[in-house]
Amino acid sequence: MRLACLLFASMLAPAALAGEVANPMQPSALWDDMRLAVIGTDDEPPVDPAIFDLDAPPRADNPALVPVRITQPPGAPAIRALALVVDGNPAPVAAEFTFGEALMPLDFEVRVRVDSYSDLRAIATLEDGRKVMAGRFVKASGGCAAPAGKSMDEVRATMGEMRFRQTEGDGRQVGTLMIRHPNFSGLQRDQVTLLTIPAEFIQTLEVKQGEAPLFTMEAGISISEDPVFRFAHVPGEGPVTVHAEDTEGRVWDQSF
């Protein structure tokens, strides 16, 4: 028995030493069909963890709140723009981000909805225009139609409220921004009336410190309810300011 265990462990060791992940991206006919529309070319971007990586759970505890973390190793080339795509979602492009110099190297987290077993991928655009990709295969289903976590009265009463906190980490500040918004996907039902709730979500987000841009987001229906953004950045001067607009034309501005 002991010998069998040692042999089994030795079989697993090479994969672990090679840094293989539990849930690498899978071949995706959906992505093949949408690649040109999303990134403007039929050429498949290379996957290069020396430039950046994306981490997401192999199986989501909650398909409506799937954490995604995008990171870069020290010295990696700067990422200026990034498209976050969930292949199997009704609207696959979850969001498009731009990043300021203060966020390099990137360490950025957001939560998304995942509607079916799917690749979750990020396509980064570097300063020289090159595109690089990273991703994971996530087992989750029903995230886009999952009921909202609060009553409609509570949703309306708190919509647009923001919270922000800063901590220190590895010589940089780590900001966590939370915005109260249901981000209705258009696929959910009111739990009282059972009627479909129209899509209504934060569409534009801009975060700065002083005059220096930190990040912007142009989003669709796949960003989670009450979105949370965690981002490491070089300390700057002035307050952190947030400007958010939703699909109904509501505007919220907050300074921290």
Rank of each mutant, 00 (worst) to 15 (best):
L36D: 03
R172E: 10
A64K: 12
A145K: 12
T176K: 12
A18E: 13
N183G: 03
F215C: 07
E161F: 10
F184H: 12
E20C: 08
R59K: 15
A76I: 12
L12V: 12
K208P: 00
K131F: 03
F231I: 01
A124H: 02
R180C: 11
P58T: 08
V110N: 04
S28W: 08
V68L: 15
A124W: 00
M159E: 14
G19W: 08
D32P: 03
L106W: 01
D55C: 01
M162P: 01
R189F: 09
R156F: 10
D33S: 13
P24K: 07
N23V: 03
P63T: 06
D153P: 00
L7V: 14
R130P: 01
M159R: 15
M25C: 13
Q254V: 11
R130S: 14
L54C: 05
L195D: 15
R113Y: 08
E245R: 15
I221D: 12
L84V: 09
A13M: 15
A81T: 00
G186T: 07
A64N: 13
L194D: 15
L82T: 10
F137Y: 15
G249I: 10
L195I: 05
L12N: 07
A122Q: 05
E237F: 05
H233Y: 14
M162W: 00
A199E: 08
P74I: 07
R35D: 05
K131G: 01
N89R: 05
D42R: 14
V251G: 02
F99R: 00
F164K: 04
I123E: 09
P77F: 06
V86G: 03
L36N: 02
S185R: 09
D33H: 04
Q26M: 13
A78T: 12
N183I: 05
T125M: 01
A140D: 06
R136A: 11
P58E: 10
I179D: 04
P90I: 09
R2N: 13
G40K: 00
N62D: 15
V234G: 00
P239E: 10
A18N: 07
P45S: 11
V174F: 00
G75P: 06
R113V: 02
M159V: 12
E245F: 02
F99V: 06
M133S: 10
V155D: 07
S151L: 05
A18L: 14
H233M: 14
E101R: 11
I123K: 01
G175M: 06
A13R: 10
